[in-house]
Computed example of a mutant assay.
Amino acid sequence: MSAILTRVTGKSALDYARETLFGPLGIEDVMWRADPQGVSGGGAGLYMHPRDMAKIGYLYLRGGVWEGKQILPASWIEAVRKADIDMRESWTKDLRYGSQFWVIPGRDAYMAVGYDRQLIVVMPKLDIVAVTTGSARFSPQSGLPGRPRYGLTALVDQLAGAVTADAPVRVDPAATAALAQKVKDAAIEWPGPVGEQPVMAKTISGKTWRFAANELRIKWLKLKLDGAEPSFEYESEGGPATPAARFGGPIGFDGYYRIGGRQRYGLSAARARWLPDGKTLVLETQTHGSDDAARVSLEFDDKTVDVKFEAAFGYKATLTGRTDD
């Protein structure tokens, strides 16, 4: 659909949206993944702030009107509310689909659904727009991967229950303080484990580790660990929808992520620790602000490195690299 829009308008979906939707709503800070031909992803890959997601929800809540101007046809939004296509998805048996939105029949609620419960929820009868964000992550407590799995109908029911009552809500200072603390805690980066720097760190620093063809499309990897600012760099050979390029950035060894450098879709964030065996480095990486967290275990020998890659959403891969340095 995105490619068709580009052919008809001569503009990418992102540029067209900036002109006809984002611009009128005052949405400026967005990114939309595109292929090498400049065609926006269409069904996924759009990044924006929660407040801007809420603007889109509010536009739908008000029948397509924004500041007195009809941005979207009211008939389009009414059709969304009445969507009744059963997509026969195992994860959403109680939802129906239409015009890029999921509808909960009988509750007059519909929502745009992104990866890992990133949602724009519209509830017209209650005059509510709710936005949630979420991501796949490795637990700072257990180290296990996880992602949001709560039911969408249950969320809507909780929202409805929170705003409807037979009497005014009783003031509860303790609950208010607890909520404020939860919000504060959510903004804190919890440090990860820290390991001692072994002799191996200096031995491997600066060497280039090359890989045979592999499913991660990694050609080579280089770590610089003997200076004041440790870093990593690698080259991806690219694929049908992604060009070859070099990526990497600084690494934090104090339990905290260092931000900088570049990943394919934004800034790199990375931290690492050495395991007690003195030869295994555990590198945690992600694109800053994205949900692509990954953990990479690199076990070094004199001329080889065994790599175990695990993404927080469940994907795993292994490969072996060699160096002639």
Rank of each mutant, 00 (worst) to 15 (best):
D301W: 08
F300I: 01
F313V: 11
W190K: 15
K222A: 10
T242D: 14
I120L: 07
T133F: 00
A186Q: 10
T242S: 15
I128Q: 05
T280S: 05
F211A: 01
G195H: 01
V296K: 02
I56V: 14
T323A: 04
Y47L: 09
A317V: 00
K11N: 12
S297M: 09
T304K: 12
L216A: 12
K69S: 13
A269D: 09
V305T: 02
K202R: 15
K279G: 04
N214T: 04
D52A: 02
F101H: 11
A54P: 02
S142M: 03
P191D: 03
A44R: 11
K11P: 05
Y256N: 10
Q181R: 14
A34T: 11
A174L: 12
T92L: 13
R210Y: 08
A244K: 10
R96T: 05
A154L: 09
P140S: 10
L95C: 08
D185G: 09
T132I: 00
G146V: 02
D325H: 00
I71K: 03
R62T: 15
W274H: 04
A245D: 15
A44W: 11
F101T: 11
L95Y: 08
A187I: 00
S40Y: 08
G57R: 07
D324W: 06
L152E: 03
S290M: 15
K125C: 02
A244S: 12
F300G: 06
I188M: 07
T176P: 08
G227Q: 12
A201I: 03
S90I: 11
I259E: 10
A136H: 08
Q286A: 13
M1N: 11
